[in-house]
Simulated scan of single mutants.
Amino acid sequence: MTDMMLIGLYALAAAGVVGLAGAAVLRLLRRRSILVHVIAMLVITVLAVVAGVATVAQAMFLSGHDLWVVLVTVTAAASISLLLGAAFGRRLASAAVWAQAARERERRLEASRRELVAWVSHDLRTPLAGMRAMAEALEDGVIADRDTLAEYHRRIRVETDRMTRLVDDLFELSRINAGALRLVPTVVPLRDVVSDAIAGVAPLAARRNITLRARETGWPTVRAGERELARIVTNLLVNSVRYTPEHGFVDIEAGHERGSVWLSISDTCGGIPAEDIDRVFDVAFRGQRARTPPGGGGLGLAIVRGLVEAHGGNVEVCNTGHGCRFEVRLPVSA
């Protein structure tokens, strides 16, 4: 029993020395990655075992041959442990990176939600206050002039339409974010979708003296949800028309390339500031005050990105010589 206690004390002392040195090394590595920490801990553990075995072997007066047999056996087992530990460390490091990215994404989403609530509150409060004032004036009979009455009715209808569009956008965005969007893919001629979108946006473009120009030929077909695809094209067109100064141009093109269908909408808005271009598709982002169009809820481009990604595609924006260019790419079998 006394011999066993001595052997244990020898092994504990040797391993303790290595452990203290290892703790100092880990302290120096505290700013390094998780993978480095895992490998360092495994190396320290293996060295502690080797030190304990070597010390006990010396205390037991083992022959050199027997000592080498023990050390080779420990080294072989340690090599397997290090390999497995390195693999586990890489997976753990990847999981940590993913968790950090998820936390950052959640933080951005929460900031976007707060900003969205602020924008929606403002966009609803202003027209509601005006409609309430006009309704009270009509109810009290203080307006007798027929032209003024007609103008009040027109403004109430306009503000109602504006709030309806905002509520529709919020509903669409909530379906996208909740994963409740259900696509019904069909083969859709892109030319027909673009023609309908141009017809719907034409009155807005005419009021601002903006020319809409679409390619005459070469329009591909794509398998996509027809309603969602129409929403994508219309939102992009409305966005370009709103931001393009009077007497500007908006060009629509499309094509087929490397197993995908692309659609581009270019305008002469003057370009997007470099600090804003990465936030264009964020919820409720509407850019600088001078570039904020009347009646915009800041949701149109966020809906575009959500619908495009639901089809397995992607949407990008870049500045061109006199404006910016939005490009949507959808897989042929979206």
Rank of each mutant, 00 (worst) to 15 (best):
D3F: 05
A15Q: 03
I34M: 04
A40F: 11
L42V: 14
L47V: 08
L47M: 14
L47R: 06
A48E: 05
G52I: 11
T55L: 13
G64Y: 08
L67V: 10
I80Q: 00
G85D: 09
A87I: 15
G89W: 02
A93C: 01
R105W: 03
R108F: 10
R113L: 14
H122A: 14
E136Q: 15
L138T: 12
D145M: 09
Y152S: 07
D161L: 13
R162V: 09
L166C: 04
G179I: 09
G179A: 07
R182G: 05
L183T: 10
T186K: 14
L190Y: 03
R191T: 03
R191S: 13
S195P: 00
G200F: 08
P203R: 09
I210D: 02
T211G: 00
E216H: 09
W219N: 05
T221Q: 04
I232L: 06
V233Y: 04
N235F: 05
I252H: 02
E253L: 07
A254Y: 01
G255N: 02
L263E: 04
I265D: 00
G270A: 13
A274K: 09
E275I: 11
I277Q: 00
R279K: 14
F281W: 10
V283L: 09
V308S: 02
F326S: 03
E327Y: 06
